[in-house]
Design a protein around this nucleic acid. Sequence first.
RNA 1: GGCCCUAUCGUCUAACGGUUAGGACAUCGCCUUUUCAAGGCGGUAAUCAGAGUUCGAUUCUCUGUAGGGUCACCA
Length: 471
Amino acid sequence: MENKVVTRFAPSPTGFMHVGNLRTALYSWLWAKKNNGTFILRIEDTDKEREVAGAEEHIIKVLKWVGLNWDEGPIVGGPQNSYKQSERLDLYKKYAQTLIDKGLAYPDPYTAEEVEEFRKKAEADKKAFLYREHRPETFGVWDGTKPLRFKIENIKRYEWNDVVFGDLSAGPEALDDFILIKSDGYPTYNFCHIVDDIEMNITHVIRGQEYIPSIPKFLALYEALGVKPPIFACLPHIMGKDGHKKLGKRDGAKDAFEYKEEGYLPEALINFLALLGWHPSSDQEVFTVEELIKSFELERIQKSGAQWNDEKLDWINKEHIKKLSSEELQKNIFEWLPENLRIQKIIPLITERISKFGDIKKMIEIGELDFLVKQPEYAKEKLIFKNTAPEKIKSNLQQAIKALENIAENEFTSENVKAALMQIADTLESRGELLHPVRFALSGLDKSPDPFIIADILGKNETISRLQKAI
RNA sequence: GGCCCUAUCGUCUAACGGUUAGGACAUCGCCUUUUCAAGGCGGUAAUCAGAGUUCGAUUCUCUGUAGGGUCACCA
């Protein structure tokens, strides 16, 4: 079965995993799942300088959180000896040797400084720098202390097809004698990712658009190796929210794990990311992961970059919170509730509010309910309802206190509080003249559950004391 | 600078060459409600510019403009 789809996500452990990387992983994963294929996780750790301790574990943690499970790779293993490039060095040497034997690879005789000179000179002459113009006439024997370079044979215009971008081509300027193996013995990305893709039988290479200019080099290498290249699918960039720059770590691209910490559900982040650069033929916007797998198509990936949009993410998250079963919802609420708020009475209150009104966008908002256990701070102007005079508000609150004092402590339920307050509120020009200040005095929040239920939880004494304080 | 890519409401996007250019987020207005939020209903808002092909162009071609990417012993 040679046409089984095999995709891979191949991050390098050089820092945290940001949302752009996660989207690349997602698309590869979706495509493999849709085709009942194999999704491989491969760690590209050939740059020892930039490697960050713990980065690999972090990537794995993020993938696990969002549920992008891999069929082969670290932890789960697979037919390969290892899925870390640093542990596959012999393999790359073997491929390098076949290129040397064919006369298609040679040691770079220059020092790094000398190459830098060439580059500077080309720049001064306003010409593109091409190492191959300085290629030595005869090749020495490679002893591993010098970089090994690839000898580009066909200096021509390469044409190829990309599932997303269509027919692409690039002239000979894109081709150069690039380095296969560095002087430290580690291979370069340009070389080892191709060896790995061949060895792992990758059928679809899904990666960022920034690789398009390098693809002619890859094609030349596939040619030299006598291997048919896989299908390429390049992804448009995710743009930062302010400008039109590629979303990078510099302009605030966040660690994907921060979204977990802010209370986004993994399925919501996945849903949002899927829609950022891809769109189904229908108008559907809210997807379960299963639905995404079903409708995902590489052909419908967008060519132009998409701007990150927090508001839409929030909306999608809210929609997913509303879809949670009551069991899942309770579990989530419990997790997000600060420990001192895990009171029996509160969980059903929030559960009801969310399932009935669905007004929580991020689970972290649940943590804001700590006004239930401590007197909130707020600006006194907030107590004013529209243009009502402060004196009016004051007297309304005084009336409310009087009414509430008449309720016995053991009958201080939300129903009774509501009845008492509504009786007063109905005599006013607008109910808000009473209900707004009461709600604010109790919660101190712009948006909160209704005042009756808060009063119920706070109890008679605390409720009245907060109202008095407001006055 | 060389090479390469892209271009529809503010944003994400839909539209076999023929549509009153559709949807969603955001925004605005109204309704509902128990204040806010949430919910319901509705409004404002887009084919980068100029040629060409065609009976007809958002769609095809060219030029321009604007944006982006890439030119490492990084991936």
